[in-house]
Amino acid sequence: MSDVPLIHLDGLTKTLTGQGEPRPILSGVNLTVHPGDSVAILGRSGSGKSTLLSLIGLFDRPDSGRYLLHGNDIARVPERRAARLRSQEFGFVFQRFFLLKHLTALQNVSMALVNGQGWLPRRKRRAKVMAALEQVGIAHLARHKPARLSGGEQQRVAIARALVREPKILLADEPTGALDTETGALVIDVLHAATHRGCGLVLVTHDHAHANRMQRVLRLTDGMLVPEHQGVFR
């Protein structure tokens, strides 16, 4: 574990403003994730777990507080730089797999490399994609389109897409929500394996069993993160 944390959130707040009354959703979140850390975040629906993940992943910006990435404050980073950071630093896995149905598994994973942040020749791109698919154990399905893949296989394609750029932090938003228990466990295995290579993992889940496999388990309550208990992988 290095001294400088991958991410450090300090007093992060966020109020959702829409058509109705402004609704404070995060009111001073503190979180530190080091390389190789795995953190599970539990919480009831609407507690702000996904909002927190979208702030960490730079989908959105906090109203106040500090967000340090490798020690640099990126809480107010402009969109262009945020896009570059999303590409270089983060990998995202969602509950719905968001695979493009007209593309093969290989092309879906390749999508993360064809994003305007640098350019890899086709051969190198393909090698990286195949390595990522190999990592999640479905290299043999590279030419299959999503319609021919099971839910677990689709989620593994989505994980390969998140891993292909070798991110520093994996952000997973209920990645097992659409899967059966057994397949879900396999997906968590794949995600957790990434932490062995020094990748930080922040997992948002409702499933205590999956949460307990993380090093730390936190609960988001009243807009703040509180420790639930220590996970089994510690």
């Binding site: 992943g57 989908f59 969109e79 262009r80 896009a83 570059r84 950071l85 999303r86 590409s87 270089q88 995202f92 968001f98 493009l100 999508m111 993360a112 994003n115 305007g116 942040q117 897409r161 750029r165």
Partner: peptide, 15 residues
Amino acid sequence: EEFALRRAVGTPRLL
């Protein structure tokens, strides 16, 4: 969803 996802993986708005 496709475009939102592309932004999530780092595609700039301009692209």
